[in-house]
Amino acid sequence: MPAQRLLLVHAHPDDESIGQGATMAKYAAEGRGVTLVTCTAGELGEILVPSLEHLAADKDDTLGEHRRQEIADAMAELGVTDHRWLGGFGRYRDSGMKWDDDGNATAADEMDERAFANADLLEAANHLVEVIREVRPQVLVTYDQFGQYGHPDHIQAHRVATYATALAAVPSYRRDLGEAWDISKVYWGAMSESRFREGMRALRDAGDTTSFEGMDPDGPLPWTTPDADLAAVVDATDYAERKIAAMKAHATQITVDGPFFALSNNAGNHVWGVEYYRLAKGTQGELGPDGLETDLFAGL
């Protein structure tokens, strides 16, 4: 077992690569333990490849199985060898979503009875407790209480990860799930407000006026985190190409020719290779020159 171990809890395939792909690749390359738990197979994701539209839920309903291979390919790009499905593949189904008037995701009008958002919280948490007690991570990464942008599966992943973290640390709780383990630090993935504004300005300067249309680099920005609330930044610029390759592996979900990819290679890599975090549990360790931890294991 590696001396330092990171556990990430995400809702769908591709969330991990977009959010923390560079961190995962960096830590895996450094010999640290990296375990990813994915809660659903993303059966209701939007399909961007016309020839694969038959996989959709209202047709063959086989997108989940296809994305199972996509995430396997993505993990290979990141060098991550320990990937698990919460409760086993297919245990929980993508809940779907729709956009509200404020531009945030919210629950769909209709939801399958197997939807992750409807899952019994204790049952789902117990599946994760077993993983926590086996892997014994010092650090866990998941979403904030809003799932960053409101998707019901992201919010449920936050709830499950938070509950499981607490339960796993109780010595007398479900001894059959393994020996108790208290995770030292819990982080929520975040998007730096200042960095996002800089990226938008760079796009505008490069002549891109359509990306993030309707959003003002100097106006309100949803889904971002004020820099004062950030606790850590992992500069994994050297692993940005691996992150981008992992994103490309999720071909049904991501078109890797959009915002920021139009920037120069160095600028684009910096956008994708530097990842930010909020600290939800634990104490900050040594801080870098900008007042943030530069390693999620700092102080441990």
Rank of each mutant, 00 (worst) to 15 (best):
V274M: 11
I254V: 15
A267N: 07
V271G: 01
S264R: 01
F261G: 00
F261Q: 05
A267L: 05
G282E: 09
G285W: 14
F260R: 05
S264F: 01
R278F: 12
T283C: 08
N269A: 09
G273C: 12
G285R: 06
Y276K: 04
N265F: 01
S264T: 08
T283D: 12
N269M: 11
L263W: 07
V271C: 11
P259R: 07
V256K: 09
L279V: 06
G258R: 14
D290Q: 15
E275P: 09
T255F: 04
G273F: 14
G288M: 13
W272A: 13
E275D: 08
Q284A: 15
P289Y: 11
F261E: 09
A267W: 03
P289S: 15
G285I: 08
L263D: 02
A267M: 09
G288W: 12
S264H: 00
V271W: 15
G258F: 06
L287P: 01
Q253P: 06
G282W: 07
L263T: 00
D257Y: 05
L287G: 02
W272R: 12
P259M: 05
E286N: 04
V271H: 14
E275G: 07
E286C: 00
S264Y: 02
E286L: 12
A280I: 05
R278Y: 13
D290Y: 11
E286P: 00
A280K: 12
P259C: 03
